[in-house]
Design a protein around this nucleic acid. Structure first.
Lengths: 334, 334
DNA sequence: GTGAAAGCGCTAACAC
DNA sequence: GTGTTAGCGCTTTCAC
C-alpha cells in the first residue's frame, strides 16, 4: 500500500490557493504575492511535497534531460569528455541519460530510439565515426545534437573538437626535425575520418614539408588497445621506424612497453608521441610526450553549445575547434 | 512551427481501432487479432509514430529509468562498475541517468532529489561511504536502492561487494610470508568504513596470525591519487617498510614510481600489492601484483539485484559478496 | 495577483 | 478481441 503520493493538488487545497499558484511558486514565477508564497512554501514543507518531473515533462514538453551516447565509459578519453558534459549539464539543471553504444550499429540505433522516446531535450554524441543510419536518426528527431570529440565531415550538426590535422602535423614535424627519417603513423581504424582523413593528412603534410616520401609500410592500422600496441614492436622494427606518432594513449603505452620489453631503448632508439595526454602518460616510465587535448573542456563546451541550441539562442558558430598543446616528456628528445 | 507530433490517437483514427488497441500492439499484448495487429503496425509505419515514454511513465508510474550515482566517471574503478550496470540495464530495457556526486554532501543530496523527482524506478549508489543524509533520502523515497562496490555497515539496502577484510588479510599475509616484517598499509580516508574498518581489520588479522605487532607508523592515510603516492617514498623509508598493501591502483603506481625514481628497487627492495587490478597494473613496469575484483560483475550483479527489487520479486539475499582473486605479477616475489 | 479549466500522450480498469 | 473512459500530476492560456 503506497503511502498516497501527495500532489500539487493537495498542496493547493491545504494552502487555500489554486494549483496554478502552487505551480508558480514551485517554478519561481515572480507573479505571486510574498505572503501567498510563504503560505504555499509552508504547506509544501509540511506535506513534504515533491514535484513530479515526469508530469511536468508531459505538460511542458521539456524534460531537462539530455541523452549522451558514449562508446565505452570505461575508456578514459571518453569518460573525460563525459565528465565535462555532466558538470555543465548539472550547472544548467539538466540530467544526463548515459548510454554505451559500443559503436555497434544496431545497438546504437536502438539506444538512440530509446533516448528520443524518453523525449530528451538534446543529445550529445561521442564516437569515432558517424554512420549514415545514425545521421538519419538525428534528422528524424528534431532534437538538437552536438558531437563531442567526434568528427562529422559534413558539419551538419554542432560539434566540438581540436584541429586533429594540425596537431598531427605538428608532432610529426617535431619527430622529423629531431632526426627521424622514418616516422610510423600508428592508428586505429583508418575508416574513421578522424584517423584516415584528418590525422593521416597531418602526417602527410609534415612529411611533405620536410621533403620526405610517404611510405605505406609505415602506416599501421590496429585496435585501440594495450595488447595491440604491445604486439607491434617487430613490425615497427622490420619497417625501420625510429619513431612513431600514436593516436591513442593505451595503444602508445603498449607500443612503448613492447619496444622496451624487447630491448629497444626509448627515447634513445625509438621515440613516441601520443595523442590524448591522459594520466597514463605520466604513470609509465619513460613518461610519454603527448598532444594535450582539453578533453574536459571539449565535453563542457559541447554541453554549453547544446544548452544554447535547446534554448533556441543565436549560435555564431556551431563547429568549434578548441586549442591543443604539446607536452614534452621523456619519450622524445628535448 | 513544429510538425505536429503524431500520437497514439492519430494511429487509432487512421487504423480504425481504439487507442487501447494501439497501446496493446505497441506493448506486445497478445490479446490482439493478428489481422488487427498488422493493420495497426502498418499505420504506425506510415505515420512514423513513436511512443512517448514520458506520457507512458506518467500513466503507468514506471519510467524504466534508473538513477546511478557515481563519485567520478573518470575513475576507472567506478567506470568499470558503471559499465556492468549499464550493460545489464540495457538488457532489461532500462536506461541509466548517470550523475557525478564528487562525494560532496550537498551536491549528492541535490542530485538524489533530482533523480527521485524524475521518478526513477530504482537507484544504484556508488561511493566510498554512505552518509546519514544520503541514507535518509533513501528511506524518504520508497524507491529500491542497491549499493555497488560500496559498504553500508548497517546492511539496510541491497549491496554487492567483495569481502574486503578477507582480501586484505590474504595479501598482507602473503607479503609477510614472503619475508617482510614491516608491511605498510597505504589507504585513502580511514573514515571510510571500507578502509578504516574492513581493510584495516584484514591487515591487523594478518599481522596477528603471524605474531607481528601492529605499528601505527606503518599506516598511511592519503589521497586517492597518483601524486599522493609518488610523494610517500621518504616516509615509507623512514618507517622502515619493505612492502606495502595499497588500496587503489593509481595510488599504488604513484608509490611504486616514487620508490623507483629514488633508486629503490621493486620488488627486490620493496614489494607492492594493490587492490583493483585495473589495466594500469599491466601497463607499468614492473607490473603490479593485485587483488582482482570482478568490477564489471559487481556492477552487473548490482543492477540485476535491482531489477528483482523493482519487480518485487523474492530476494534470497540482498547483501552479496562476490569472489575475489589475486594476480601475481612483478612487484612481489613469486 | 490568482483561479478555472483544458490538455500533454498514454495506460489500465472495465464493459461489451 | 476490442472499445470507453478515467485518470497520471503538472503547465499554461485565458479570464478576472
Amino acid at each position: 500500500m503506497d503511502k498516497q503520493t501527495i500532489t500539487i493538488y493537495d498542496v493547493a487545497r491545504e494552502a487555500n490557493v489554486s494549483m496554478a499558484t502552487v505551480s508558480r511558486v514551485v517554478n519561481g514565477n515572480p507573479n505571486v504575492k510574498p505572503a501567498t508564497r510563504q503560505k504555499v512554501l509552508k504547506v509544501i514543507e509540511e506535506l513534504d511535497y515533491r514535484p513530479n518531473a515526469v508530469a511536468r515533462g508531459l505538460a511542458s514538453k521539456k524534460t531537462t534531460t539530455v541523452g549522451v551516447i558514449i562508446p565505452d565509459v570505461t575508456n578514459i578519453y571518453f569518460s573525460s569528455l563525459a565528465r565535462g558534459i555532466d558538470d555543465v549539464a548539472t550547472m544548467y539543471k539538466y540530467n544526463i541519460i548515459l548510454a554505451n553504444s559500443e559503436e555497434n550499429g544496431p545497438k546504437e540505433i536502438q539506444v538512440l530510439n530509446s533516448l528520443f522516446a524518453k523525449q530528451v531535450d538534446g543529445l550529445i554524441y561521442m564516437g569515432h565515426t558517424l554512420s549514415d543510419e545514425v545521421r538519419a536518426e538525428f534528422s528524424r528527431a528534431k532534437t538538437p545534437v552536438v558531437l563531442a570529440g567526434t568528427i562529422d565531415p559534413d558539419e551538419q550538426v554542432g560539434s566540438v573538437n581540436i584541429d586533429y590535422t594540425e596537431a598531427s602535423r605538428h608532432v610529426v614535424d617535431k619527430l622529423i626535425k629531431d632526426g627521424n627519417q622514418k616516422v610510423a603513423f600508428i592508428s586505429g581504424d583508418l575508416n574513421y575520418p578522424i584517423n584516415g582523413k584528418y590525422r593521416l593528412e597531418g602526417y602527410k603534410q609534415a612529411l611533405k614539408a620536410n621533403k620526405l616520401p610517404f611510405d605505406d609500410s609505415l602506416v599501421f592500422e590496429t585496435d585501440y588497445s594495450y595488447k595491440a600496441g604491445e604486439a607491434l614492436w617487430s613490425q615497427l622494427q622490420a619497417a625501420g621506424a625510429t619513431a612513431a606518432y600514436v593516436i591513442d594513449d593505451e595503444l602508445a603505452v603498449g607500443v612503448m612497453n613492447g619496444m622496451i620489453d624487447h630491448g629497444i631503448k626509448v627515447p634513445e632508439e625509438f621515440q613516441i608521441i601520443t595523442s590524448n595526454n591522459t594520466i597514463l602518460t605520466e604513470m609509465v616510465r619513460p613518461k610519454i610526450t603527448s598532444i594535450s587535448q582539453p578533453l574536459y573542456d571539449i565535453g563542457a563546451v559541447a554541453m554549453r553549445l547544446l544548452t544554447k541550441m535547446m534554448n533556441k539562442e543565436e549560435i555564431d558558430e556551431k563547429t568549434i575547434l578548441l586549442p591543443y598543446d604539446m607536452v614534452q616528456r621523456e619519450s622524445t628528445k628535448a
